[in-house]
Design a protein around this nucleic acid. Structure first.
Lengths: 123, 123
DNA sequence: GTAGGACCTGACATCAGTGTGAGGGGCAAG
DNA sequence: CTTGCCCCTCACACTGATGTCAGGTCCTAC
């Protein structure tokens, strides 16, 4: 499949797909004229990449953890440590966000109703 | 207090403090010669700003929600809606990160021990 | 009053992911 | 062979928070 197809099937822009390739996250064979051809397995890989990006990992981190996720048996101690680093970073970010979300939630709950929904008290 | 002091007491770089001011997040009086002077209440404000930044909010969002957090009584419906938007965004980000963290966690748990700690199974 | 540190503004650099435009080729259908 | 769409590379722009450098001023301690 070609970049346009892959783009359509993953939601990633063509630009992004080329960028992922440049970062070593996906690879493509080239036709004689230089056009990229992808195996269909790349679709899932791209979707995974996007999940990780959305989770706040950078392409470098993704390049490290992707192999583990694709071939769990290829995990080395080195890689496992990397996974742990990223997991712990996520844990910290989650805690930070939960704390802040709850703080915002309290302000919202304390706000003059806004007839947002709220059983508006048990009046 | 002066920028250097505020910087030391908050952990924010002088550069960042000036940036926060430029974004309207904090304000300072100026001496005749133009140097910034801060009230001590600004310390807490800066700490709060940093919490929000760490939680992934941008300075624009922070500029909106800070007044609510400082003076809850000043909350307008408009502001409350903004709070809700940010809270919901946080909720999404949290869900995304939790999912990814759990995926990483599974890989880590499935990894060849690494004698990380682990009661190393109930062997 | 002088040295040296703290401060001022302004501007350019960084990172990351993505958008966008230029200038040029590939390939299938008519 | 031409039309039209897809692809190629290169390269510059943007956003956001921060670093950093330059050139200049202020102020405290001696």
């Amino acid at each position: 499949m070609r970049v346009g197809d892959l783009s359509r099937r993953t939601g990633a822009s063509v630009r992004s797909l080329r960028y992922y390739e440049q970062r070593g996250l996906i690879d493509a064979t080239r036709t004689a004229s230089g056009q990229r051809r992808y195996e269909s397995s790349v679709i899932d890989r791209v979707l995974l990449i996007r999940q990780l990006l959305d989770a706040g990992l950078g392409t470098a981190a993704i390049a490290d953890v992707l192999p583990c996720m694709a071939h769990p048996e290829s995990q080395t101690a080195q890689l496992t440590r990397r996974l742990i680093v990223e997991r712990d970073r996520l844990t910290d970010e989650i805690a930070q966000r939960v704390a802040t979300r709850d703080a915002l939630g309290q302000l919202i709950d304390a706000a003059p109703s806004l007839d947002d929904r709220h059983g508006s008290s048990a009046s």
